[in-house]
Design a protein around this nucleic acid. Structure first.
Lengths: 227, 227
DNA sequence: GCAATATCGATTGTTGAACAATATGTGCGG
DNA sequence: CCGCACATATTGTTCAACAATCGATATTGC
């Protein structure tokens, strides 16, 4: 009945907690660079240290945590190099997706639906939601490839990118200008104009990367003026 | 003294064993579909069950093992769907690499070197080595992107592909025809002819995929005539 | 005899405690 | 001020145990 939001009872304990920690990471609840003490986190979630270590291994393999031997695990702190790399991956994979696009693909319909929901969230001023849906939009775009492995790889970098966004507090202006670009891109895809869509994607990614890098720059200045 | 072959002492125990198991997987020592009992494997390597579970999580996240809750972990058995998907990923990523190629990139030199070593191994009749070097060749190609994350993703599917090769016994004819194609492709890249190189890559991948699928078909018939 | 069910056994899931190995921090002496 | 020994805390790893779950076997009823 009320099992609407988060009710994954049956899933193995490690998956549950891993999901929770993942949520805390991309929501910024766990600050980047923070050290995650095994003892403390294990106590906090009421699980054993051994079980937690399995979870840490999982999240580390997803680039959300960094594991330094004999030192512990830390929340990853994506720097400019990571952002550049992430957008390089996006460029390759998403361009491949656009090239593989066919007009009848269900992913296009999903993208259209997400776009309307974005509009709604934007008018409601829910920028947090706008960011989430925007991510989903691009995730769906990659599904044009019909490749589970490619989608999985892409999801990895998207999660990492959300970690970057968690560094900022004001995400509004980071998403706002791109809704329109998303819309234009989708129209081109629905029309089957691969060439134009590809160019539009280039523009989108270049512009997005620049603004993320800029925001990262200012954010870094605020948190640590020197070093 | 005799510390020639495998002596990674300092690395954490889990990394060591994980590497060993990984080797056993891609060398076919652990047959696809085989169940890996925690107790047995842990005893075999003289490590604890807890430590082994961390390793299993790692290899599972790399698609080399399949983890079924409350059932255990099994060596992944890539089927036709996996092969098709793997080549889809290769298509997207490697095409992106070719597009990003610049004539002065060090990866090109490495590819050239690997090609000569392939020739040597081929004449020596060491097909096992030919396969390994061929993988390295394509791995280097992806490094044209200068993207650690893209390289990591690609390495994942390559490892899985080697798992497929482990299903066959006669890998000679699977690599032989492609040495020449690799060479032609490299020549085009060195000449800076992106367009031609891209086409050549398409041909390579299409042909390789077909032969792998064919080999998989016959291999499956031999192991399990029905079902 | 055969199908549905109950039971049993083995394996995985998870825990807690223990010890070794390693890094961090502290104080001492030079 | 610098380097070195020591104390401390955390991670790395193991072990033993118990709960939960799955598969197979044995039982029961028809």
């Amino acid at each position: 009945m009320s099992a609407a939001i988060a009710e994954m009872d049956d899933a193995p304990l490690t998956a549950q907690i891993a999901g929770k920690i993942r949520e805390m990471l991309i929501s910024g609840e766990l600050a980047p660079g923070a050290k995650l003490s095994e003892q403390q986190i294990a106590g906090q979630f009421g699980i054993s240290r051994n079980t937690l270590r399995e979870i840490f291994r999982l999240l580390t393999s997803q680039n959300l945590l960094v594991h330094i031997p004999n030192r512990g695990v830390f929340v990853a702190t994506p720097g400019e190099a990571s952002v550049v790399d992430i957008y390089r991956v996006r460029h390759v994979i998403q361009k491949g997706a656009v090239r593989a696009a066919v007009r009848t693909h269900p992913a296009l319909a999903r993208m259209r639906e997400l776009l309307t929901r974005t509009e709604a969230s934007r008018e409601a001023g829910d920028w947090r939601s706008v960011g989430t849906i925007n991510m989903e939009f691009h995730r769906s775009m990659v599904e044009l490839c019909d490749s589970p492995r490619l989608s999985a790889s892409f999801e990895l970098v998207l999660a990492e990118l959300r970690l970057v966004f968690a560094l900022f507090e004001d995400t509004a202006h980071l998403h706002d200008p791109y809704i329109a670009l998303n819309c234009e891109l989708l129209v081109l895809l629905e029309a089957g104009d691969i060439e134009a869509a590809s160019d539009k994607l280039d523009a989108y990614l270049a512009r997005s990367e620049r603004s993320v890098l800029a925001a990262l720059q200012t954010a870094k200045q605020k948190t640590s003026p020197r070093l």
